[in-house]
Simulated assay, not measured.
Amino acid sequence: MSSRLFSLISLLLLFITSLAQAAKFPVGINTNEVMQIDSSVPFLNLFKQALPFDEANGKLTRGNITYDRNGWPNNLNGGQAGTNLIHWLPEGTLPNGNYTVLYEGQGKIAYTDDAKLVSSQPGKDIIHVASGADKFFKVTLIIKQSNPNNYIKNIRVLPPGGICANNPFQRVKDASQCRGNYQAFETHYKQILFNPDYLRF
């Protein structure tokens, strides 16, 4: 067998092996950057696309705020730390309804624009989010109080509903739409990383 033919067969085998590996590990391409004005909403936890607190200086974040190494405000020093959670997302991008806000630490979070506080307990707020009269979603989150010894951090904002375990590509409103395998976003967000609506886009 000539060396040329051997090289050609080797390349062909390498190509076939690469295709087989690619089928096992599919990769998405042409995704948009993740930010508060991105209408694709790739992640289930909406806080992943929020404007960083330190980038909202002057308007939403005010005062001599200090931050930990992960960007969480660890001392408000009498000020406030705010962010645009979502901003100018078209109506229909997200469902209207009650969203769950989970966080670690002690303090008080306020919500404005198209979000209203429904209930609050330590580590968990329920907010009602509905698109405004302008047909857009705009949600602002502001840390008004935070204990410097146990400051608010690891905020997660989760939409209403969940998925049926056998179909992670379809968001459902509640357990009545599944056959005993309902996974609520609020309790399964560690396993359900991506927004089901985004996966079907």
Rank of each mutant, 00 (worst) to 15 (best):
L8S: 04
I9S: 02
I9R: 03
S10D: 07
S10R: 07
L14W: 13
F15H: 03
A23D: 13
M35G: 12
S40P: 03
V41G: 02
L44F: 05
L46F: 08
F47Y: 13
F47V: 15
L51F: 05
E55N: 09
N57G: 05
N57M: 11
L60P: 03
T61I: 10
N64K: 15
I65E: 00
Y67L: 06
D68M: 10
D68C: 09
G71E: 03
G71R: 10
W72D: 05
P73Q: 12
N74H: 12
G78M: 10
G79I: 13
T83I: 13
L85H: 01
L94V: 01
N96C: 02
G97P: 00
G97A: 04
T100I: 15
Y103T: 06
G105C: 08
G105F: 10
Q106R: 15
G107V: 04
K108D: 07
K108P: 06
I109W: 08
A110S: 13
D113H: 12
K124N: 10
D125N: 07
D125L: 08
I127R: 00
H128G: 06
A130T: 14
G132A: 03
G132Y: 00
A133L: 09
A133M: 13
F136G: 01
F137K: 07
V139M: 07
V139H: 01
L141F: 00
K144H: 00
K144C: 00
Q145W: 09
P148E: 09
I152H: 07
N154H: 15
L158S: 01
G162T: 06
G162Q: 06
I163A: 00
V172Q: 14
K173W: 13
K173R: 11
A175L: 03
S176I: 03
Q177T: 12
G180D: 02
Q183T: 04
Q183K: 15
A184E: 11
F185V: 11
K190V: 08
D197H: 08
